[in-house]
Simulated scan of single mutants.
Amino acid sequence: MSEYEIHAIKYAAMDRNRSDNFLSHDPHDGPMPMDFFVWLVRGEAGIFVIDTGFDAPTAARRNRKVWRPVAEGLKAAGVDPATVRDVVITHMHYDHCGNHDLFPQAKYHLQTREMAYATGPCMCHHALNHTFEVADVQTMVKRVFEGRVCFHDGAREIAPGLSVHWVGGHSSGLQVVRVRTRRGWVVLASDASHYYDNFERAAPFPVVVDVTEMLNGYDTMQALASSPAHIVPGHDPLVLRRYPASGFGDGIVRLDADPIAQP
């Protein structure tokens, strides 16, 4: 039975307040910063990179701070991006789909409805398209014509013990990743839950296409994970405090290890 190690690799950060991170007003406003991660999944079945982050020019345009470039974080963890064969794109927002030239040999795993959403009539509306970078979408279309995109519709096992599951909500084709590890089934939530507070309190993040899908996504993750403590949110700085260091330097923690502090 295949098991994997999982590493969360921080690559960027930004300042935010609690009122920015919940659809309903939070009366206890105060600092609630956001970290940006990519995830490395490694086991007998191979190496899988989950999401590709953004680069320095995108960070400058969007007033974000690159903490360490994605390529450097992966190399610190012992992975040469040029050799990676499989990349899972949880969704095509700017912070999950950039660094276009980083994985020249990879095929990209993407939900069919995410590509339809990112290239369809919904993108006529700024309220929906501002979370996408045109160049990211164009690059993904180019990869389709190169035969480098593997489309999934719903749930699909892409390797023994590693599967993707559509949840929607935050973006029309958002998918989460379920990974079998030594401590059980871990779910990488990506933006299905930006913070622990989002899924633990059923308090949706304000960037949302379908609120019902987002709320149902919390239930889906609970069903897929071995326990709520096996769900890893996509942007919460607490991840770096709740999991042990991987031994690859600052900002990289081991998600297949037991948390060092419970919620």
Rank of each mutant, 00 (worst) to 15 (best):
G217W: 09
V209I: 14
N216I: 06
H194N: 06
S171R: 13
S193R: 07
V208H: 08
H194I: 05
A202S: 06
A203T: 02
P204V: 11
L174D: 12
A203Q: 14
Y195M: 13
P206M: 10
V176W: 05
A192W: 05
P206H: 06
D210G: 07
V211A: 10
F199I: 01
D191G: 03
V211W: 03
H194K: 03
W185L: 00
V177G: 09
S193Q: 10
A189G: 12
V207C: 06
V179P: 04
V207N: 10
T212R: 14
T181A: 10
R201M: 03
Q175S: 15
F205C: 01
E200Q: 09
G184V: 00
D191P: 05
V176T: 13
V179A: 03
G184W: 15
L188W: 03
V186L: 00
D210V: 05
V209P: 02
D210R: 05
S193I: 02
V208R: 03
V179K: 15
G217A: 08
D197F: 05
V209C: 08
D197C: 03
V209L: 13
D191N: 03
F205N: 07
F205G: 01
Q175C: 15
S172F: 10
A202R: 11
G173H: 13
L215I: 11
Q175R: 02
D210N: 15
M214A: 14
V207R: 09
Y196P: 07
W185K: 01
L215W: 02
L174Y: 02
G173E: 08
V208I: 14
V207M: 09
E200W: 01
S171H: 10
D191L: 14
L215V: 07
R201Q: 09
V176Q: 14
T212Y: 12
D191R: 12
A202V: 07
A192L: 04
H194G: 07
H170S: 15
S172R: 14
L174E: 15
V179S: 02
R183A: 00
S172D: 13
A202D: 13
S190R: 01
D197V: 03
A202H: 06
F205W: 15
R183V: 00
